[in-house]
C-alpha cells in the first residue's frame, strides 16, 4: 500500500527489450501467471516494482514512529502490550518487504539509504502527528483500514514475492484495524472527555487518510503500465470510494461524525465525499507536512547512532570467520 500516493512514472526511461520476450512476458501476465525472481522481466517492470515495494517497506518502518510515540504512555498494560506488538508487526512487514524488494536485485542497504537521503519516499500519512491516545485508535481503524483496501488487490499482484508478502501482511493489518476500531469504540463509549478525544482524532485523520489513496484518477495517468502488468488492479478513486463506503457505517456505529458535512449518499448507496484539499497533499509530499523533518531525523538518528553496532557485528563476524579458517588450516 502506501505507494499509490507516490506514483510517478519512469515510462520516459528508455530501454530496448527483446520484443519476443516482452510479448511472452505479457502473455504470461495476461494468463494470470506469477512472475518469479529468476524469470525474465522487462527492466521497467523490475524498476517499477522495486520502487513500489521499497516505498512500501519504508512506509512500514517510518510508520513505526507515530505509533511508537505512544508505547511508553499507553493507558493500560493490555494496551501497551498490544501497541508494542503492533508496532513490532509493522517492523516485520518492513523486513518482509525489503526482502521481497531484494529479490529484484537491490540490497536493503541501498534501498534504506535512498529513503534516508530523501530520494525514495514513504507514505505521507506518517507525516502527521499522534497527539493523543485516540490517535492510536484512529490510525489502526483508518490508516490500517486504508492500507488493507490498497493491499488486498496486491495479494494477486503479478510478482510472486510481493503477492505472497501481501497475503501475510494483510492478515496482520486486518487484526490491527480491528484493534484500532476497538480502541475507538472504548473511547466512544467512555467519558465525555474520551469521546471528544476520539472525535478530534477522527477530525484530524480523516482527510489525510483519504489522500493515502493517491491523486484523483483524472490527475494520474501513471497507472497504465501498472495496470497492464497487473500490479495495480483498481484505480485510486475506486479504492477511495470503497474505503469511504466501508467506513461511514463504522463511524455511525461509533457515534462519531465524519468531518465532511457535505457528504451525501447517492442512489447506488455510495457516499459522495467533498473535494479533497490536494494542495495539502502536495505540500506534505514536498516535505512540508507537520512531521516530515522529525520522521526523517528520527530514522537518520537511529541509523547513525546504530552504525557502530552494525560495524561491531560485521567486525566480529569477520574475526570469527578468519579464526575458523586459521583453525581449519592447522
Amino acid at each position: 500500500m502506501y505507494t499509490q500516493a507516490l506514483n510517478s512514472s519512469d515510462g520516459e526511461d528508455r530501454f530496448v527489450e527483446d520484443a519476443t520476450r516482452a510479448a511472452a512476458f505479457q502473455a504470461r501476465i495476461d494468463a494470470d501467471e506469477r512472475i518469479e525472481p529468476n524469470d525474465w522481466m522487462p527492466a521497467a517492470y523490475r524498476k517499477t516494482l522495486t520502487r513500489q515495494i521499497s516505498q512500501h517497506a519504508h512506509s512500514e518502518i517510518v510508520g513505526m514512529l507515530p505509533e511508537g510515540n505512544w508505547i511508553t504512555r499507553a493507558p493500560s498494560l493490555r494496551r501497551k502490550a498490544a501497541l508494542l506488538a503492533k508496532v513490532q508487526d509493522e517492523c516485520g512487514h518492513g523486513l518482509y518487504l525489503y526482502a521481497a524488494a531484494e529479490t529484484l536485485g537491490s540490497s536493503r542497504e541501498e534501498l534504506v539509504d535512498a529513503m534516508l537521503s530523501g530520494k525514495s519516499r514513504y507514505s505521507s500519512i506518517f507525516n502527521y502527528p499522534t497527539l493523543t491516545w485516540a490517535d492510536i485508535g484512529a490510525i489502526g481503524w483508518l490508516v490500517d483500514g486504508a492500507a488493507i483496501m490498497n493491499q488486498i488487490p496486491l495479494c494477486r499482484c503479478s510478482y510472486g514475492p510481493y503477492a505472497r508478502a501481501m497475503i501475510r501482511v494483510c492478515k496482520e493489518e486486518s487484526f490491527h484495524q480491528r484493534q484500532g476500531f476497538e480502541i475507538m469504540l472504548t473511547l466512544a463509549r467512555g467519558t465525555e472527555e474520551q469521546k471528544a478525544m476520539a472525535q478530534n482524532a477522527l477530525d484530524r485523520w480523516w482527510w489525510p487518510v483519504l489522500m493515502m489513496f493517491g491523486p484523483p484518477d483524472q490527475a494520474s495517468q501513471h497507472s497504465d503500465t501498472s495496470t497492464k502488468w497487473k500490479i495495480k488492479r483498481f484505480s485510486n478513486d475506486e479504492l477511495r470510494q470503497k474505503f469511504v463506503d466501508a467506513t461511514v457505517p463504522q463511524a455511525e456505529f461509533l457515534g462519531l461524525t465524519i468531518p465532511d458535512p457535505g457528504m451525501t449518499q447517492d442512489s447506488e448507496g455510495h457516499w459522495r465525499y467533498s473535494e479533497i484539499d490536494w494542495t495539502e497533499f502536495k505540500q506534505v509530499l514536498a516535505g512540508n507536512g507537520p512531521c516530515n523533518r522529525d520522521r526523517l531525523a528520527a530514522r537518520r538518528k537511529a541509523h547513525e547512532e546504530g552504525a557502530w553496532v552494525r560495524e561491531a557485528a560485521a567486525a566480529y563476524a569477520a574475526k570469527r570467520e578468519s579464526r575458523r579458517t586459521a583453525q581449519a588450516a592447522e
Partner: peptide, 24 residues
Amino acid sequence: SEWCGHAPMMEEDMAMANMGLDLL
C-alpha cells in the same frame, strides 16, 4: 519498549520488542 523504532537495526527492533513483550 523505549527502543521501538529507534534500534541500530531492524532485527534488533524486533528482538527488543520481543523481549519487552515477554516481560510485559
